[in-house]
């Protein structure tokens, strides 16, 4: 589904990704772990098409199609979703209205009519229930005054609404208490199917107890330095990242 070939990216003069290779197939859950500053969030943003980063070499392909020239919204229409580490606050636009806009813009891009209002409402209720989201929450301004947990739950709610092929969860566990973490992970697990894939980006192993990965990759200094099964996450938790740094230097 997603194929990343020798991806190099930089912001201004600083090279952050230095040759990433990664292949994710439908039905798989991948985790990318790594110390701060290793390039994890940059990788997520580059896949989603953030213009601030310049791809200098290599490519990102979705279903065999190079995404190079696609704007972030076009990538979203093709099925890429990024759950943000720091979701943006939008006063005056309710969660419901925001989702209506997002869904209908995606439909428009596919040549479909707007989703009928009653159908939209039904969908919103269904997905809100999945994330244990209160009705009142849906009429609040998007992310404005939300707690850390509410923001992340709202991100996964949006993912549930948009039903992406590939969901990238960027540090979704940061700022979550254990109950919120369980709800969020539970939501992700229910949305998982043989047709979609999840890429979890995390510093800690904690989230991976709930969203169990098929593959774990360690990112260090802009490169994937080690890949393995879910046991690699436990090893990292135990030993920290220092041993890796030494290993790569050697």
């Amino acid at each position: 589904m997603l194929k990343i070939n020798n991806l190099h990216a930089r912001v201004e003069d600083k090279e952050i990704l230095k040759g990433i290779n990664l292949e994710i197939n439908a039905g798989e859950v991948h985790a990318i772990m790594g110390p701060n500053g290793s390039g994890k969030s940059t990788l997520a943003a580059v896949i989603a098409g953030k213009e601030e980063f310049e791809v200098t070499e290599g490519s990102v392909e979705l279903d065999g199609e190079n995404l190079e020239d696609d704007a972030p919204e076009e990538r979203a229409h093709k099925g890429i979703f990024l759950s943000f580490q720091y979701p943006v606050e939008i006063p005056g636009v309710s969660v419901t209205n925001f989702m209506k806009t997002a869904i209908n813009e995606s439909r428009k891009a596919k040549g479909l009519e707007d989703m009928p209002a009653n159908q939209m409402l039904k969908l919103i209720r269904e997905k809100a229930e999945l994330l244990e989201i209160d009705r009142k929450f849906l009429s609040r301004s998007l992310n404005e005054g939300f707690s850390g947990g509410e923001k992340k739950r709202n991100e996964i709610f949006q993912m549930a609404m948009l039903e992406p092929k590939l969901a990238i969860l960027d540090e979704t566990d940061s700022g979550l208490d254990i109950d919120a973490l369980r709800i969020v992970a539970n939501g992700v697990n229910k949305l998982k199917s043989k047709d979609n894939a999840v890429l979890v980006i995390t510093h800690y192993q904690r989230l991976l107890d709930y969203i169990v990965p098929d593959f774990v990759h360690v990112l260090h200094n802009g490169k994937i330095v080690k890949s393995g099964g879910k046991e690699l996450a436990l090893e990292l938790e135990e030993k920290g990242y220092d041993w890796l740094k030494q290993e790569t230097v050697a």
Binding site: A48, K50, E51, A76, F81, F84, V88, I103
Partner: peptide, 22 residues
């Protein structure tokens, strides 16, 4: 903020307008 809206499938022009509206 623009990137956030675009990543949800909202085209840049509409995303800009939505942010200005907000």
């Amino acid at each position: 903020a623009l990137f956030y809206l675009q990543s949800r499938g909202i085209p840049k022009k509409e995303a800009r307008a939505l942010l200005m509206y907000a």
